[in-house]
Amino acid sequence: MIAYLARRLGQAVLILFGVSVITFALLYLLPADPVRQIAGRSATPETVANIRRELGLDQPFLVQYGRYLAGLLQGDLGRSYLQRSEVSELIAARLPASLLLMAGAIACELVFGLTMGLIAAVKRGSALDQGLMVASFVGVSAPQFVVGLLLLYVFAVRLGWFPIGGYGSWRHLVLPSVTLGILGAGWYARMMRSSMLDVLRQDYVRTARAKGLSRAVVLLRHALPNAILPVIAMVGIDIGLFMSGIVVVESVFGWPGIGQLAWQAIQRVDIPIIMGVTLVSACAIVLGNLLADTLAPFIDPRIKLQ
């Protein structure tokens, strides 16, 4: 286990290094000029040149990246161009809200997706099965901002069950969590149905039925732990997907997380914040996949870490 974790952590470092290089290069080639955002439209060429020199943006790419990487190795994500604050402090202030929203979304997609997939597999070929699969297809296909606006209109504006936006109570969490969870629920429902159908054809399931075990015991104790393994692997990937989709959802619902911070930074070409959020998202993807791979052998002892 220790050797496996050490090898995976080494791979994670290389992945994060690659992400930092690619992201920094793309931002370096970006047509928009962050100095103009800082100086303002009425700034003189001398003022623009002074700001560019002060920030080190007049240096070649390798010099700029080398300086950024040296700070990154010391835990320094840089300083925001416009907010004049440390990027690490800005992200740390917003991260708890994003993690809370992510946890709520994962809970929603697992509850809805696994339930739909299990019912569809048990009722294979029925109208209920077909209806659930159509619903899962719609959930996968629907844009998140459209889903979010529809949920806001129905449950916040028309029915008044939940607040329109903001942060602070469980009622603020419900609609954005469901909006994020609907996409994953659709995938999980289809995956769970397919995996459960494969498991139900296995010999040990037929043996359990032949022993006279109840249908619920066969499904929950024997079939579900094996059918759920592909879903566990998907949860780790979903953490990264949430980090990308969370930008839209947080903007729609006014949720004060790192997604909203990233959106504001993109609009203002605040490169240090964009880099910081990208690296934090990449870390979440890597750690999520590592966690999923590590938990798999505890659920199914036949799986060996290599």
Rank of each mutant, 00 (worst) to 15 (best):
V138Q: 00
A208R: 02
F145K: 04
L200E: 08
Y28S: 11
L9I: 14
Y204P: 11
R302Y: 09
L229D: 00
G56M: 04
L305V: 07
G165A: 13
R158K: 15
T278G: 04
A92W: 09
G259Q: 03
Q267T: 10
G165H: 00
C108E: 01
A135D: 04
S251F: 03
L175P: 04
A43G: 10
G181C: 09
L55I: 04
D129Y: 06
R36M: 11
R268G: 06
P297L: 07
V248L: 09
K123A: 14
R36W: 01
E109G: 01
L261K: 02
Y28Q: 07
L291T: 11
L9H: 02
A216M: 12
L26D: 07
L26F: 11
S141W: 05
R268T: 13
L175A: 07
R209D: 06
K211H: 13
Q202W: 01
G166D: 08
R84E: 13
R201D: 15
R302E: 10
D203L: 07
G125V: 12
Q202N: 09
V178K: 01
A223P: 07
G56R: 00
I273D: 05
R171S: 14
E86P: 02
L305A: 07
P96W: 06
G113V: 05
L149S: 11
A208Y: 03
I258V: 14
I38N: 02
V154N: 03
G276Y: 00
G148E: 06
I285Q: 02
M196S: 05
M234S: 12
R201Y: 10
V235H: 02
V19L: 11
L55E: 05
R7K: 15
Y4H: 08
W161I: 08
L173V: 13
Q37A: 12
L9M: 14
V63A: 13
T207L: 14
F17T: 10
